[in-house]
Nucleic acid binder design. Structure first.
Length: 293
DNA sequence: TTCCAGGAACGAG
DNA sequence: CTCGTTCCTGGA
């Protein structure tokens, strides 16, 4: 919360930011448009901009940007107004499992991503692992997104606008290795692109109403809806349950073979308004431990 | 060659 | 409502 901002040419440096670790932020399953560079920094494309982020000691260095974009985009994107210390303290109360989970993923932050991009990304994510999801999104962007610039010798493309996908065929979309999800992508592009639904207004609804609205879209089920709510709409009480979260919840809090609904109700009740943060720490912890492998 | 991981749709009960 | 099956891709 209390950090110092230093402006330099093409970069913004933050000093003294707590609870911020790049590998935790990008490798906890919330975001797919990043690449880890050989120097350990991360280059990402978000909100039509290319950003490189590095961490050195207690400095976070935003490269290829400026102070206007820091205030206009990245401060919100990285959830820098949120007091993660307070959230952690609340989640750890009477919960040794969460304490250990947070020890592993102490630097996680929930990114505020674009709603449309998050919708399509998580439709693509269903029934697949992270490397494949990244590849499909990258190919969709290269084919149908605008070239926004080059960085470190590589061209980077914005995520395609709904209108850019609107008149494509299922076969074209399938070339981006989306499989049977191609139809869902086109349906979603029609719903959003033709303004049958204003996805940028959904965050004004309460979490349950917003979820109901998202579930109208074909290819969006409970898990994908909760990912969109949490990773693009600031609904921090959403609790997306994928296989990893299912396993870690059953292992530490419940027992094997629990129906999803039971885990959902338990998580919502136990973690309350911070369920989304709990989900992120648990997801990261489950993968670190390799539970169920 | 076969097997497996991973969410939602869909039909049956 | 819950349950079981099917849909794809790529890596082991």
């Amino acid at each position: 919360m209390n950090y110092k901002i230093v402006e330099e040419k093409d970069k913004v440096i933050l000093e003294g930011v707590a609870d911020f670790e790049l590998s935790h932020i990008f490798e906890c399953g919330q975001c797919f448009r990043w690449n880890r560079e050989v120097d350990g920094s991360y280059t990402l494309v978000a909100h039509k901009k290319i950003l490189n982020v590095a961490k050195e000691k207690d400095q976070i260095i935003f490269n290829n940007t400026n102070i206007e974009d820091f205030y206009g985009i990245w401060k919100t994107y990285f959830d820098l107004g949120q007091d993660y210390g307070a959230i952690k303290k609340s989640l750890c109360k009477n919960d040794p499992v969460m304490e250990r989970a947070i020890e592993k993923g102490y630097g996680i932050r929930i990114l505020k991503q674009d709603e449309w991009e998050t919708l399509i990304s998580f439709i693509i994510s269903s029934n697949r692992g992270i490397p494949l999801i990244k590849k499909s999104i990258e190919e969709l962007s290269e084919k149908y997104g605008r070239l926004i610039g080059t960085y470190k010798g590589r061209g980077h493309y914005a995520f395609p606008e709904p209108e850019a996908l609107l008149n494509r065929t299922i076969e074209e979309i399938r070339l981006c290795r989306t499989g049977y999800r191609a139809k869902y992508i086109l349906d979603a592009a029609a719903i959003v692109g033709e303004r049958q639904m204003n996805i940028y207004n959904i965050h004004n609804l309460d979490t349950d109403m917003a979820r109901k609205e998202l579930l109208r879209i074909s290819g969006v089920g409970p898990k994908v809806a909760d990912c969109i709510l949490l990773f693009s709409m600031g609904k921090f009480d959403a609790f997306p349950i994928d296989v990893w979260v299912k396993r870690v919840m059953e292992y530490f809090y419940l027992q094997e073979d629990m129906p999803l609904k039971v885990i959902q109700d338990y998580g919502q009740k136990r973690f309350g308004e911070y369920a989304g943060f709990a989900q992120q720490y648990l997801f990261y912890y489950a993968r670190e431990l390799g539970i169920g492998k």
